[in-house]
Amino acid sequence: MKVQENLRDIARKLLVNKEATLVIGYAPGSEVSRVIPAFIRKEEEVDHLIWNPLCVNNLAKYLLDYNQEPGKVAVVVKGCDSRAIVRLIQDNQIPREKIIILGIPCPGLLDPETVASRLNPNTQILSASLNEQAFSIQTEEGIFTFSRNESLLEKCRSCEHHTPVIADFMLGEEIPPANRVDPFEKVKKLEDLPVKDRSDYWDKQFQRCLRCYACRNVCPACTCRECVFDQAEPCWIAKANNLSENTAFHLIRAFHVAGRCVDCGECDRVCPVNIPLTLLNRKILKDIKDLFNVPTPGTNLNELPPLGSFTNSDPDEFM
């Protein structure tokens, strides 16, 4: 729990010294397996802040709600979330000097469903730790261990940056890159299928889309002041919920975030009908990497998205 202590200490200092007017972090949720985004403004609320392997939400996008904040806003980010910070800065959504980045080197998260299936929902987590083999969660009802192999969150298996790529305060020891599952494993499998099968696969997924727009609202690359899907005129996508409109929605969105998607996995997490959006976005990410030989977007503040920047030396073979 060293990280949690560091987090509270620094948050307290920032608020007391008025270096920040707001700290965005995590607090316990309504049940043991959930956390909530917390917005801390007062010193006495700092102890609500927690860090444990259930802190899944990417908090970076909340910064957009506070771009009129008079003071600086501090935000807690994991490695994956930190790429979203770079995204927002590069897109001129937030000025770098207005934010204080509290980076947490994250060894990987626990699948909340696995936790929920074993723990009393009303208990509280007292402490958590992780070694090579297992997560260990101490609650009021004892210590529970979860094998890392079985209960590591899917997206963490292919984690690229355990340590945030950008931070003003690093709240724990840096975690070096480790062996990871190929993030494009599933993409490659799908690519190997005949066109008909691929098409059927996505039809089945998009068919059940509710068009709740959670994927868009949570996405750190979706920052348009007015989204095309909300425009009445011109009407790019009909309000009708059917396969054709749903497909158009997902493909337009995928191409809109192409080269800017930081692969944080939030769209996948929030989808209420489990549409594998990471798979869709990773297909484009893979193509972009193949075409332009660039790192995952958001990795480097000075490296602009390949489709959003140009130089005189760009090849123009297509002209």
């Binding site: 909530i36 985004p37 917005f39 909340y62 709600d65 509710l210 068009r211 709740c212 727009y213 959670a214 868009r216 609202n217 949570v218 009909a238 309000k239 009708a240 929030v270 209420p272």
Partner: peptide, 25 residues
């Protein structure tokens, strides 16, 4: 409201939400 994403999940999966829009094609 601070943490709400403003998405439509809760209303769309809810058994009692009944708001609708009317549109022409």
């Amino acid at each position: 409201a601070q943490r709400c994403l403003g998405c439509g999940i809760c209303t769309f999966i809810c058994p009692t939400c009944h708001c609708f829009d009317i549109f022409d094609q």
